Amino acid sequence: MSEPVLKLKGVETDIAQYHILKKVDLDVPRGSVTMLLGRNGVGKTTTLRTIIGHWQARAGSITFDGNDITRLPVPDRARAGIGFVPEDMGIFADLTVEENMILAAISGPLDAARRDWLFSVFPPLRTFWNAAAGNLSGGQKQMLSIARAMAERRTLYLIDEPTKGLAPAIISTMVGALRELKAQGASILMVEQNFAVAKALGDHAAVMDDGRIVWTGSMAELANDATLQERLMGLSMEMQ
């Protein structure tokens, strides 16, 4: 097997006086989708934000594509090939969809072929290309948020709860887009509370509890074992 695209070893992160991440060990296999699962408040979002550098790890190491990025600034991590889709979307409401996309293309002008591919997986982007992003619906804003991370080919995408609060038709579009992204060879680490989506997209799963990774394995193994789900997360995917 190839080396993981991302490796966290003993990562600890504090936010103010709170000790959130407690010696997190996590491998993200290359070219696949890893679901980061667990109940609310266990440290999933903090893990993603520590990887991208919004929060600095107090201890431990983060290795991406064979390089130690533990102390790199956020822009350098992005330039190294990591895309990030935050839970709060992170779009610029006063700018147009096109302007949001231009800003997201950090290496230069937005590639026309890449733009057309994004139009194919997220058709509303073409329709609202010249509209202010703040005027989009919630689902359209989420599409734009993910499209911004996809504006350039990245090695790894960190995606935080992309389907939260969205209608089933929008979720279906999201799942299709992420499948195409994976087919291009990208690696994805994704926090997701919708277990139907997790089961449909995930190759691997890592479950967090109280700031630690408490289980790793295949997504299929977790999805097919209601007893394991109940033990790890206090719920059953069969109910989703």
Rank of each mutant, 00 (worst) to 15 (best):
D94T: 13
T173L: 14
L136Y: 02
A104M: 00
T96V: 10
L118A: 04
Y157M: 02
L72K: 10
V85C: 10
G134V: 08
E192R: 00
I91F: 05
W117V: 04
T163W: 00
A105P: 02
T96A: 08
K141C: 03
A131M: 13
G138R: 09
E152V: 13
L118G: 01
N67G: 06
R58K: 14
V85E: 06
M150C: 14
Q142D: 09
M143K: 04
G108T: 07
V191Q: 00
Q140R: 11
S107F: 07
V97T: 10
R115H: 07
F195Y: 15
D111G: 07
L125F: 09
F84K: 07
A131S: 14
V74Q: 09
Y157F: 15
F195C: 06
I102K: 14
G108P: 02
I188V: 15
M143E: 03
D116W: 06
D76V: 12
R114D: 03
M190E: 00
G83H: 02
L158Q: 01
M101P: 02
D88L: 11
W117L: 07
M101Y: 04
T155D: 08
V191A: 00
P124Y: 12
I159V: 15
P109Q: 09
A167Q: 12
P109E: 08
A133I: 01
I102E: 15
W129Q: 10
E161N: 03
P86M: 12
N67W: 07
Y157K: 02
L125M: 12
K164W: 13
Q184V: 03
T163C: 12
Q142A: 09
N135G: 15
F195H: 11
L118V: 08
E161C: 03
R153G: 08
F119R: 08
Q140D: 13
V97D: 04
G108I: 04
P168V: 11
G165P: 03
S107R: 15
W129N: 08
I146H: 05
M174E: 06
I159N: 02
A57N: 02
P75W: 15
D76A: 14
T155L: 12
A186H: 00
F195S: 07
A132H: 12
L166Y: 02
W117Y: 13
W117P: 01
A186G: 07
A186E: 00
F64L: 08
G60Q: 13
Y157G: 01
N100A: 09
A93P: 10
R58T: 11
I146F: 08
A133P: 01
E87W: 09
